[in-house]
Design a protein around this nucleic acid. Structure first.
Lengths: 161, 161
DNA sequence: CGCAATTACTTGACATCTCAACTATTCACC
DNA sequence: GGTGAATAGTTGAGATGTCAAGTAATTGCG
């Protein structure tokens, strides 16, 4: 538990003089900041296509769902998000004609959502640049480190459940 | 590059059948989702105190700044955030009397911000539960794994700069 | 069968965050 | 010294998230 001679990278970024209170604290702050940076990079990547990152995620999930589509709450579950946000995002996606919604005939409480052909075309144009952004995120890591990062993040989530 | 027999944890969470397109993609998605989970836990921890996570961060930074306080843009830099959000958050923090603002005498363009004694008292009440939340985040990890996670996150951010 | 509880949203209100545009100062340079 | 450029911050408008409360359809149970 010796005092390090140099500050950690994160300490310098935060312009902090004091060392972190604990490994947990430094890991938490590092995690949130890193996610912010990645999110921002994603946003920049998508901006030229007139779509936001959360909207892109929804479209991609709907494409994955295929012909059957998904209902609103199922979408919310996959995004770990509450329904109200989804409803309003779908309103906007529908206005762009990237998504189509209709009441389910089986259960008229449900609203089933589908990507439109326009939406699929948009995704096709975007996929490559998103792949590039994803790979850029792990540019600094070796393949083994990338996998180790994935494993550690899995463990963090498992510990929080 | 062999196909894994079992799906990764994240693949199960996302109910995806296909393996991830790349290590970069899985790491990116894992990072964003893990940060969301940690952020949510933080929000729950702070809710009983009537303060949001971003507000708590601002207060903690201002406490760290001490008697000299900080100007708005300096706060924005430390939070990796744009100024407009900070202005409005400070409006709310000031309404709660946790923060005090005044035009700098040196440079009348600047607005210097300080925690009030009320703010300091609030932080004192909160510090412990936040520490606990931070430690809970790495509960699943050994000490060595925690440090490894910090190192890998540092590398990701360094690679994105 | 009928009615209460549950489910699947939807709407309203508020806190973040973002970009763009605007005001007030201060700085730099002739 | 004065004027144009840069800096610090605010305001407006839109997207995302949250909770609370309301509506419509379905389920469960006596």
């Amino acid at each position: 538990m010796t005092r390090p001679i140099t500050q950690s990278l994160l300490q310098q970024e935060l312009k902090q003089r004091k060392p972190f209170r604990s490994v947990g604290h430094e890991a938490t702050v590092g995690l949130l900041r890193t996610a912010d940076v990645v999110r921002r990079r994603w946003t920049e990547t998508l901006a030229p296509y007139g779509i936001t990152a959360p909207q892109y995620n929804v479209l991609r999930i709907l494409r994955g769902a295929g012909r059957e589509g998904l209902c609103t709450l199922e979408l919310a579950n996959r995004l770990i998000e509450r329904a109200p946000g989804i409803t309003r995002m779908l309103d906007r996606l529908e206005a762009h004609r990237w998504v189509r919604r209709e009441r389910s005939a089986d259960d008229r409480r449900e609203v089933r959502c589908y990507v439109t052909p326009d939406g699929v075309r948009l995704l096709a144009r975007i996929d490559k640049v998103v792949d590039e952004a994803d790979n850029a995120a792990v540019r600094g890591l070796s393949r083994a480190e990338g996998r180790e990062l994935i494993r550690l993040l899995d463990k963090v989530r498992a510990g929080l459940r």
